[in-house]
Design a protein around this nucleic acid. Sequence first.
DNA 1: TGCCCCTTACG
DNA 2: GTAAGGGGC
Length: 479
Amino acid sequence: MTGRPEVSIVWFRDDLRTADHPALRAALDAGPTIALYVLDEQSPGVRPLGGAARWWLHHALADLRKGLAELKVPLVIRRGSAASVVPDVASRAGAGAVFWNRRYGAPERRADQAVKALLAAAGRTGKSFQATLLHEPWRITTQQGNPYRVFTPFWKTLSAHDFRPPLAAPGPQDARNLAVPDGLELEELDLLPSHPDWSGPLSEAWTPGEQAGQEILADFLDDRLTDYREARERPGVDGSSRLSPYLRWGHVSPFQVWAGLAPLRREAPESSATFASELGWREFAWHQLYHHPRLATVNLRPEFDRHPWWLPGEEEPDGGGGDGDMTALLHAWQRGTTGIPLVDAGQRQLWNAGWMHNRVRMVSASFLVKNLGIHWRLGEEWFWDTLVDADPAANPFNWQWAAGSGADAAPFFRIFNPQTQAKTHDPDGRYLAEWIPELNTPEYPQPCVDLLDSRKDALDRLKIMSESGAHQAQTAGRS
DNA sequence: TGCCCCTTACG
DNA sequence: GTAAGGGGC
């Protein structure tokens, strides 16, 4: 025995903060602590990060290293599969325990279980904590014992709970004699875009990291929450919280948001409830992903397997101009040159700022899957690559919601009219003017589809899908 | 977290 | 002519 307490490791993942971090707290309580981040692109089934997310992660890790340095906690950065890297770092550090906050995707849970087993085999402890969700998805069911499929009763049940108060940031540790295993330089992760470096507008729009996230949360609660319910519907106005990437990367925890909201519920009950329910949708999306691990690829409503959505490599269903036309439509949607102003403004905001106003996300998604008849997975993949808040649960969940194929999704007949939506939610045209300088000039393209005709086609496709389903069910019943 | 069209009432 | 409200998609 050396008489000195054993080293602990805190393994950071989607929780890049120092406050309200139960795993960090547990490690520091146990003794000398080393922090670890593993860029894991090797574990089977783990989804590779999109381009905008990689940019965010780079700056988030730089910020985390700074925040941890104030606590005298060194950050080791490694690359590789969690099951090989984490036990290796634990061994090199001579650590007695590794602490982490739980993840909820299936490949991530498998990786974490493997790590725990390997640690145990080497005589070390692996211990996990709840930090990223207000509720554990396996703890909440309907009275029949099934996972919730409808948001309203889910949130009613969940929000009746009182959630734990957030943990304060810990104080600095005594880091004398701490032997730190070798790691990589942050730059060696190669997360930043080069040739070309397209990150300029991202840097202007966002400051990744815990401190920036906490400031935005505080400003939002102080200044903007009161009008949130109305202002959030106006993409030309700074009315949304802009917290989504900070929640995605764990710079802000949902417990911090929940606690920050509490004192404002009396003076702004409606805006508080609306904003709280957005946290609820986040919880619901993770709940769905936990129960349906293939949420990003498989229709939750199986009848949508018969929907004739277009995917690359397929002929155009109506025998029109063929695959090339649909590829061109997809490209126009991606780059914001459809000739539908609100859709184009949204897609250009996404391409430049790595983020899109939520109202516009719904309109643009509806346009892709309904008016253009393109498979929601292509939209989901584009958002995954371009959003700084691209979330493994919320992104596929929201696309399935827009497509109608999800649990508690928008009914099939709900097809947004981008023109009507622009008139209602951007009445002064500020949002359109901000992102489409050439609007109302000959430079701006003509609409790539007729809104009314394509709406009618979408309803026809959905009706045929439902009717052929009813027929199949009848046939199956008879046999 | 919808859109459209019809009816009705009113001037 | 048009605004408001209801029902179907």
